[in-house]
């Protein structure tokens, strides 16, 4: 099987995240950057499928600035075979629709692909639909929020678990599958894996390499524009009291005062 995993480098959710004051995009320099946790699970799923299907290959695809290489290396050190990194200054500020179309173009450079895997939702954006959108651009079915994933011959079946319930979905390959946080526990890269990852091929594509016209991406032609952004004034702490045996009653009093009970 030829498996592609879409990964994203995101600001560490344990660090404080900021927007740049100039163009209201993510201030990537202000934060620690990591491979998004959910993407590690997508890589793990890909590796499990590879291990079960001889002759499979796992290709990591990422779009982002130069330093996204760190996230790519992490995926390679877990065991992915190779990577393609779409990196071009002109991509800065691309909106969700532009990003989707660019990713689809990159996938298009990879030849016959059987399965495209991704995390269900990045931790630094709330669109939560890029995998399904990529599938639509490619004309492929999307099976999203997979808690379980099985590939049997050319049929892929997914147990989709969301807050609204469980749906069992199936289709024929090729297809796009996004995984949720319960699908597996991603492996830790071994020392051997980390060393091997340094030698694995990472192809860096510019827009031209991927066949993307510069007018299709970037801040200037984005379908949405952020017109202003401002840090919300931090909520300041209110009253704090020591419990002297009447803590619960004091909260009740406060809530009554606020007309909350």
């Amino acid at each position: 099987m030829n498996i592609v995993v879409l990964v994203k480098q995101v600001p560490d959710t344990y660090s404080e995240r900021k927007l740049s004051s100039g163009d209201h995009t993510l201030d990537r320099d202000a934060t620690d950057a990591v491979l998004d946790e959910i993407d590690e699970r997508a890589v793990e799923s890909a590796l499990q499928l590879k291990e079960a299907n001889d002759g499979s290959e796992v290709t990591v695809v990422a779009m982002g600035p130069d330093r996204a290489t760190d996230a790519i290396r992490k995926a390679l050190s877990m065991g992915a075979d190779k990577a393609v990194h779409l990196s071009d200054e002109a991509l800065h500020g691309s909106c969700a629709v532009q990003t989707t179309k660019a990713l689809a173009k990159v996938i298009g450079t990879l030849g016959e692909v059987d399965l495209i895997l991704a995390g269900n939702e990045a931790s630094d954006g709330r669109i939560g639909a890029i995998p399904a959108m990529v599938a639509d651009v490619l004309g492929l079915p999307s099976l999203t929020h997979a808690r379980e994933l099985t590939v049997d011959g050319s049929t892929v079946t997914v147990r989709r678990e969301t807050d609204d319930g469980v749906t069992v979905l199936s289709t024929e390959l090729p297809a796009v599958v996004s995984v949720n946080e319960k699908i597996n526990e991603p492996r830790y890269p071994s020392f051997k894996g980390i060393m091997a990852a340094k030698k694995k091929p990472v192809t860096t594509l510019t827009l031209a390499d991927a066949g993307i016209d510069a007018s299709e991406v970037g801040l200037a032609s984005a379908l949405t524009t952020v017109t202003s952004s401002q840090p919300k004034p931090p909520k300041s702490g209110g009253e704090k009291v020591e419990d002297e045996g009447d803590g619960g009653a004091k909260i009740a009093q406060f809530l009554v005062g606020q007309k909350l009970i």
Partner: peptide, 26 residues
């Protein structure tokens, strides 16, 4: 506590049941 409008420094196993009792009473 930096973002709480009202905070109680104490044992939640004492404070929460007492609050529950007050709420039920009301």
């Amino acid at each position: 506590f930096e973002i709480a409008d009202f905070g109680v420094v104490g044992d939640l196993f004492k404070v929460a049941p007492q609050l529950q009792e007050e709420v039920t009473k009301r």
